[in-house]
Amino acid sequence: MTAEPAQLHAQHVGETGETVVFLHGLFGQGKNFTQIAKALTPDLQSVLIDLPNHGDSEWTETFDYIEQADLVAEHLRSTVASDGPVHLVGHSMGGKVAMVLALRHPELISSLAVVDISPVARESMGEFDHLIGSLSRLDLAELSSRGEADELLQEPIPERIVRGFLLQSLVRDGEGFRWRVNLDLLHESLPQIGGFPEFTEETFEGPVLWIAGAESDYVQDDFAPAMRALFPRVSLTTIKDAGHWVHAEKPEVFSAVLKAFFTAD
């Protein structure tokens, strides 16, 4: 008996203009892009998707980029892309899902923005192993508030923006708290999350914007040949003074870059 596909939760922002679909990164959720989506209105409307094992979308038993991309593709095909292709933005893990989706379902995507990630396997996921470990060590049964959680995480995760981003997934559940991310599955799947499927023949021929944070190492010159092989029309934009969480660190610049790209003739 085949399991039913996981159901995806999506939030809509705006009512006019062409549609932009956002896919968040590891530990994220669609609403991480709410500020960006509002900045794109009224020129563009947005759909903010919670990927499986995140936000209000269902959890799965395994992690696989092709399965996730196909799941998002079916959601788009039955909703916002039913009348024609949409623009797609993906950050980090969501950027890998977005790239796989564009390669496997190019008819659904008119243009693609890949944010601070590359179509290569990352040798080390130690940073994310540390983050998941820090979150898992919080005793949710003893937690009195999200503010207390923030205090407890200050030593292992000193970056305020990163803590705030992660704690968006900590929600009240009755008198206690719970995580809206599937920490156990994501932890055991870090090698798969750090990897990238092999594509030998597929290419996406639409326009692609590759956005890098200047202070991040997820986009490197050495990765450019792999990117160009899959996405021949790629162009690179680097946002200075930004790290991996580009949209959270430089939201005004990020929004302006996206709007210029998606509204270009």
Rank of each mutant, 00 (worst) to 15 (best):
N182A: 09
L209A: 09
Y218I: 01
Y218T: 00
A214E: 11
G174T: 11
E198M: 14
D173C: 12
N182H: 14
G174D: 10
Q192H: 05
G195C: 00
D221R: 09
L185G: 04
S216R: 04
E175C: 12
F204Y: 13
E201D: 08
E201Q: 11
E202G: 03
D217Q: 08
P197T: 15
I193N: 11
Q192L: 14
L209W: 12
L183W: 05
G176W: 10
D184A: 15
L185S: 01
P225C: 11
G195D: 04
L170F: 13
F199T: 02
H187M: 14
R180Y: 14
E201A: 08
R172N: 10
P197S: 12
S189M: 06
D184K: 08
A212W: 03
H187V: 15
G194P: 03
L186R: 00
G174S: 15
D217W: 04
L186M: 05
T203D: 04
R178Q: 03
I211V: 12
P197R: 10
G194H: 02
A224G: 07
W179Q: 09
G195Y: 00
D222N: 03
L190D: 02
L190K: 04
L186C: 14
S216N: 07
G206H: 07
L183H: 12
Q192V: 09
F223A: 00
P191F: 02
S216E: 07
G174F: 01
L185Q: 11
T203N: 02
A224V: 12
L185A: 03
D173I: 01
T203V: 11
H187Q: 15
L186H: 13
Q220Y: 08
G195E: 00
Q220R: 08
F204K: 10
E215G: 15
L170S: 08
D221F: 14
L186D: 15
E198C: 15
I193H: 06
L209F: 15
A212C: 05
I211A: 10
G213P: 02
L209R: 09
A226I: 09
A224W: 12
P197E: 14
E188V: 12
V219D: 00
W179Y: 03
E202K: 03
P225D: 06
L170Y: 03
L170A: 04
N182W: 04
V181S: 09
D222I: 06
V181D: 10
A224Y: 13
D184Y: 14
G195A: 11
E202N: 05
D221H: 15
G213K: 01
F223S: 00
F196A: 06
D184F: 07
E188G: 15
V181Y: 04
E201F: 14
V208E: 03
G174E: 08
P225T: 05
R178P: 06
E215P: 08
G176M: 09
G176H: 15
A212Q: 06
G174M: 03
P191A: 05
D221I: 15
D184G: 08
G176I: 12
H187F: 14
F196M: 09
A224N: 12
P197W: 13
V181W: 01
F223D: 01
